[in-house]
Design a protein around this nucleic acid. Structure first.
Length: 722
DNA sequence: CACTTGCACTTTTTT
DNA sequence: AGTGCAAGTG
């Protein structure tokens, strides 16, 4: 059999990894080293050369996107489908396991998944039920605690709590878990923990899967947490082979429980593992790689790895120090236009920032210059309020005991079930250790509820029951459509008069088409509705955007991981912004920020531009920052400071280059430059920070010793000092 | 029960 | 600055 195509065009290290004998393997894959390709080819090798059935392979990723891409590429390479291969996210695979063995996992067959938003609401209710002051015990913190413990594999009863804080949080955890169990709800962390316990406690199930999965491959291993590691270990048993792929230098999720140490733990727990380093980079220029290497070299305790390329040296890294964030945006816009004039595509450009708040000014600049852009990381489809409302009705149809869904829509649209009535239901549910649905039924039957409240609650219960009866034989999309109309949700949003409400109606219609295109697998004896509900929870859906329009891509440094662009801007390279204020004190957190910087830099293929602003407005407060320490870690001869070039530009040159707009006209008219020192008769000396408006309306912002002021140029009688 | 006002918050995000 | 949430008011 000719399998040469599986190794074609690969370097020696890549071939080693793809064609290795059966053994444990750690593939330390640097950025742009062809990691996914190696993983895909390794899977194909196992199937085609080693003659493994796809059934005996399990491959794990972190995102649905990565899983889908991997499956597609394997199938393309093999020219056959590999549906029987377990390939998915940790959560997706754990979910599959729990569905298949729901009884052993002590779950109801129709258990539903609780997303983090639902989880937070539920935690809030628990806090209230326990009479805990929400100021003293923030729901977010309790949620964080619960998920943290689950990530560590701990149940409430296993936690030793000594002080009052721990004792209280443990109590909340226990009460929350009881509520989940009663309602048949499983949160994200619970998926992993339950699946782990299922394998641990059930010999039959464990051995079945240990026999089945001969090869386990895990991508982005540096992002695994404790329970995920334990999960892999459990399935590996003593007989199977584990291949992990990762890069300790790209570990940027420590703050949410990821443990880089898992890479070392792997070497400890699988001592026969062979380590293969992929260090040849196929993405970036030498200039960029050397700079990135120099920055990351400042971190300690690395597994050790240095990227290299035999490609071009490329252009030096541009560094631009702006006076404020508006000017930073203007510079970026000018570079984008320059790129466009040279025939470059906008979709090859990325604007990266440390926090989402930074995108605003950049957007304004792009909007003003009429450059199309696309922002990553907005609200996802299934996370939208109206979509969640509709899904909640579907969830109730599927499982009446779903308290999260009950609470969400019991009075949406309003049907006269107020806080007072709901309080009675909650109390009854608490006293009887039952769910909201059953408690409501009971209150109605026992005539504890009377009058209007009784009618209203009865109306809701009947509505959900009738919706199920009327739709259980329908197709999923017809069912959804009927629920939208029957529940009154659609009418409610249609009655609202705002452009926001219009998009909401559109999204509800979009939900119907989503159910039309959804293809149930029919596996695990699930109904199409149940499958769709799981899908909605596990895959929040791509954010809708015209992905195909030629547009500049805006995103946080975190969401840029795994992507590449010809021209990359890293903005806000200032102390306090990047590294973030919260991280700069602690060395561990700082190291993670540095890795984030490394991730950002290695996204760039051809050109990397770093920008910072000397002053930046944050939370309505003007702040002055020093340039990021990471800038100081760059090799000086790899950096070109482009600020000087701009400063010596005359206003008219600048005007033509910026294709000017109003503010540039005024810039010309005021006769002042940003950063220029000026003298005011009353406020004394100051520095020009910003400008706006035209002609006699034009104002400039000047930072005086007493603070910054906006002055109308025509009246302020300012004297230029330099 | 709906609407208004006041207050506290503000890194990063996937499942 | 802007937002989201909870208590207060009609």
């Amino acid at each position: 059999m000719d399998v040469s195509h599986l190794l074609d065009g690969m370097n020696d290290r890549q071939r080693d990894a793809v064609s290795a004998d059966e053994r444990h393997m750690l593939v330390l894959a640097g950025a742009g080293s062809g990691k996914t390709r190696v993983l895909v080819h390794r899977i194909a090798w196992l199937i085609q050369v080693m003659q493994y059935s796809p059934m005996s392979i399990m491959a794990v990723t972190f995102t649905n996107k990565a899983a889908a891409e991997m499956r597609g590429r394997v199938e393309q390479l093999l020219g056959r489908d590999v549906r029987s291969m377990w390939l998915g996210t940790f959560h997706g695979l754990a979910h599959r396991l729990l569905r298949a063995h729901y009884q052993d996992a002590k779950l109801p067959q129709n258990f539903q998944i609780l997303d983090s938003d639902d989880q937070l609401r539920l935690v809030k209710r628990i806090l209230r039920a326990l009479n805990l002051d929400e100021k003293q015990w923030p729901a977010k913190q309790a949620q964080w605690y619960i998920n943290g413990k689950k990530d560590e594999g701990l149940r409430a009863e296993h936690i030793d709590a000594f002080d009052i804080t721990d004792k209280t949080l443990k109590e909340v955890y226990a009460a929350y878990q009881e509520a989940c169990d009663r309602a048949g709800l499983v949160d994200f962390a619970e998926l992993l923990l339950r699946a782990h316990e299922l394998l641990r406690d059930n010999k039959y199930v464990r051995e079945h899967y240990q026999k089945r999965f001969r090869h386990i491959l895990v991508d982005e291993f540096q992002d695994t947490n404790q329970i995920q590691y334990a999960w892999v270990q459990m399935l590996a048993g003593t007989q199977n082979y584990v291949t992990i792929v990762g890069d300790d230098d790209q570990s940027i999720y420590g703050w949410r429980g990821a443990q880089v140490e898992n890479l070392q733990h792997f070497l400890r727990d699988f001592p026969s593992a062979e380590t293969i380093r992929l260090e040849q980079n196929y993405r970036s220029t030498n200039m960029i790689l050397q700079a990135a290497n120099a920055v990351i070299a400042n971190n300690e305790d690395r597994l050790g790895k240095e990227l290299w390329t035999d490609g071009a040296d490329g252009a030096p890294i541009s560094l631009y120090g702006a006076f404020n964030e508006q000017e930073e945006a203007r510079y970026i816009v000018s570079r984008i236009m320059q790129w466009q004039e040279q025939g470059g595509a906008l979709s090859d450009i990325a604007l990266l920032y440390r926090n989402n708040a930074q995108s605003r000014v950049l957007e304004e600049g792009l909007l003003y210059a009429q450059i199309p852009y696309r922002i990553y990381g907005g609200l996802r489809f299934f996370d939208r309020q109206e979509v969640k409302d509709a899904v909640a009705y579907l969830r109730l149809i599927s499982n009446r005991n779903d308290d999260a869904a009950f609470e969400r829509v019991v009075n949406t649209p309003t049907r006269g079930i107020g806080e007072r009535t709901l309080g009675l239901v909650r109390e009854a549910a608490k006293n009887e250790q039952t769910t909201m649905w059953r408690a409501a039924q009971q209150l109605v039957n026992e005539k504890i509820l009377t009058g209007r409240a009784r009618t209203a609650v009865t109306g809701f219960l009947t509505l959900v029951n009738e919706l199920e009866e009327a739709t259980h034989a329908m197709s999923l999309s017809a069912q959804t459509d009927k629920v939208l109309h029957g529940s009154g949700l659609l009418a409610m949003y249609q009655a609202e008069k705002s452009d926001k409400a219009e998009t909401r109606v559109d999204n509800l219609k979009e939900l119907v088409s989503a159910t039309e295109t959804f293809v149930p697998t029919g596996e695990e004896g699930m109904t199409p509705l149940a499958e769709f509900l799981s899908h909605a929870a596990l895959e929040a859906g791509e954010e809708q955007a015209d992905a195909h329009q030629d547009a500049v891509q805006l995103m946080t440094l975190h969401s840029a991981k795994g992507l590449e662009f010809k021209l990359v801007f890293m903005t806000g390279m200032e102390e306090g912004t990047f590294p973030s204020l919260q991280s700069s004190a602690e060395s561990g957190r700082l190291a993670e920020e540095r890795r984030l910087c490394y991730v950002g830099m290695t996204r760039a293929m051809e050109q990397l531009v770093l920008t910072y602003a000397e002053t930046r407005r944050l939370y309505g407060q003007m702040n002055t920052h020093r340039p990021s320490r990471f800038i100081g870690e760059l090799p000086p001869d790899h950096v070109e400071n482009v600020r000087e070039h701009v400063r010596v530009e005359t206003p008219s040159q600048s005007r033509s280059r910026f294709h000017t707009g109003v503010s540039h006209e005024s810039f010309v008219e005021t006769g002042f430059k940003l950063g220029q020192r000026v003298l005011h008769s009353k406020f004394g000396e100051g520095t020009v920070l910003n400008y706006e408006g035209t002609g006699s309306q034009s104002r400039i912002q000047v930072n005086f010793a007493t603070g910054s002021k906006w002055l109308v140029v025509a009246y302020a009688r300012l004297t230029a000092l330099d």
